[in-house]
C-alpha cells in the first residue's frame, strides 16, 4: 500500500497556488457528469424492478378508475386526460423517494458533496437519470392506457409530449423534496405532502394540453407553458436540490 504514495502526494498536493494546473474545470466537470449519469443508469438497470414498478403502478391505478367509477366509454373519455395525468404524476412521485436514499445510506452522498465539482450540476445528472427511467417511460406508455380509457386517437402524441415535458419538471421539483427528506427515517409520506402542492401548475397545463387536443383547440399554448415551466425548473431547481442535500447530510 505504500509505494507510489510518496510520489503521488508530491505530484498532487502542492499548495493552493496550483489552481492553473488543477483548472480545466469544464473538462473535469464533463468527466464527472458523464460518469455520474453512467453510474446511475447502470445501477437502475441492474435493479430493473425499480424502473418497472412505477409503470406497473401507473397501469394499475388506471385500471382502478373504470372499476371504481363506470365502464361507460363516454364518461371515461371525458375524464381520461385528468386521470392519466394524475396517475402518471403519482407514479413519478412514487419513485422519487429512492432518488437520493441509496446514496445517502451507503455514504456516496457525502462523497458527492465533497467532490470538487458544483453540486448543483452533479445533482442535475441524477435527476436526468430519474426522468429518463421514470418520466420518459411513463410518457411512452400513456397512449396505451389512453386506448383503454377511449381517448380519441388524435390526442395520443400530445399526451406523450405533454407527459414527457411535464414529468421533467416534476422530477426537478420533486428532487428538491427528495433531497429535503432523504435524511429522515420515514420521509416518504412527508415527501408527498411537500411536493404535491408544487406539482399543481404542471398538472393543470399538462392535463389542459390533452384536453385542448381532444377539443381540437390546438395544444401549442399549453405545451409552450409546460416548456416554460421546465425551463424555470431547470434554472432554479438544481440550486434548491444542492442546498437541500447540504442540509440533509447534516442530519
Amino acid at each position: 500500500m505504500t509505494e507510489g504514495m510518496t510520489e503521488s502526494v508530491k505530484q498532487q498536493s502542492a499548495p493552493a497556488g496550483d489552481e492553473s494546473r488543477n483548472a480545466a474545470p469544464s473538462s473535469g466537470l464533463g468527466i464527472a457528469l458523464a460518469a455520474t449519469l453512467r453510474r446511475d443508469l447502470v445501477l437502475m438497470l441492474r435493479y430493473r424492478g425499480e424502473v418497472l414498478n412505477p409503470l406497473v403502478f401507473f397501469a394499475l391505478v388506471i385500471t382502478l378508475f373504470p372499476i371504481g367509477i363506470s365502464p361507460d366509454p363516454e364518461l371515461l373519455q371525458r375524464i381520461a386526460p385528468g386521470l392519466l395525468w394524475v396517475a402518471a404524476l403519482l407514479a413519478a412521485l412514487l419513485s422519487l423517494d429512492s432518488l437520493f436514499r441509496g446514496d445517502f445510506d451507503d455514504g456516496s452522498l457525502e462523497q458527492l458533496l465533497l467532490a470538487p465539482q458544483p453540486l448543483a450540476a452533479l445533482s442535475l445528472a441524477k435527476v436526468a437519470v430519474h426522468w429518463l427511467l421514470t418520466g420518459l417511460p411513463l410518457a411512452l406508455m400513456a397512449p396505451l392506457l389512453g386506448v383503454m380509457l377511449s381517448l380519441p386517437p388524435g390526442s395520443y402524441s400530445i399526451l406523450s409530449l405533454s407527459l414527457a415535458l411535464g414529468s421533467a419538471s416534476l422530477s426537478l421539483i420533486g428532487a428538491i423534496g427528495a433531497a429535503l427528506t432523504v435524511g429522515l427515517a420515514r420521509g416518504g409520506v412527508l415527501l408527498s405532502l411537500l411536493v404535491l402542492p408544487l406539482y399543481i401548475p404542471v398538472l393543470i397545463f399538462g392535463a389542459g394540453a390533452v384536453q385542448a387536443a381532444i377539443m381540437g383547440d390546438g395544444a401549442g399554448a399549453h405545451l409552450a407553458i409546460l416548456g416554460a415551466l421546465l425551463a424555470a425548473s431547470l434554472a432554479l431547481a438544481p440550486w434548491g436540490i444542492a442546498a437541500a442535500l447540504r442540509i440533509s447530510i447534516n442530519g
Partner: peptide, 10 residues
C-alpha cells in the same frame, strides 16, 4: 418538515 428533523438547526 421543520418538526421531522432531529436536529433543530437542520
Amino acid at each position: 418538515l421543520r418538526g421531522s428533523f432531529a436536529s433543530r438547526h437542520s
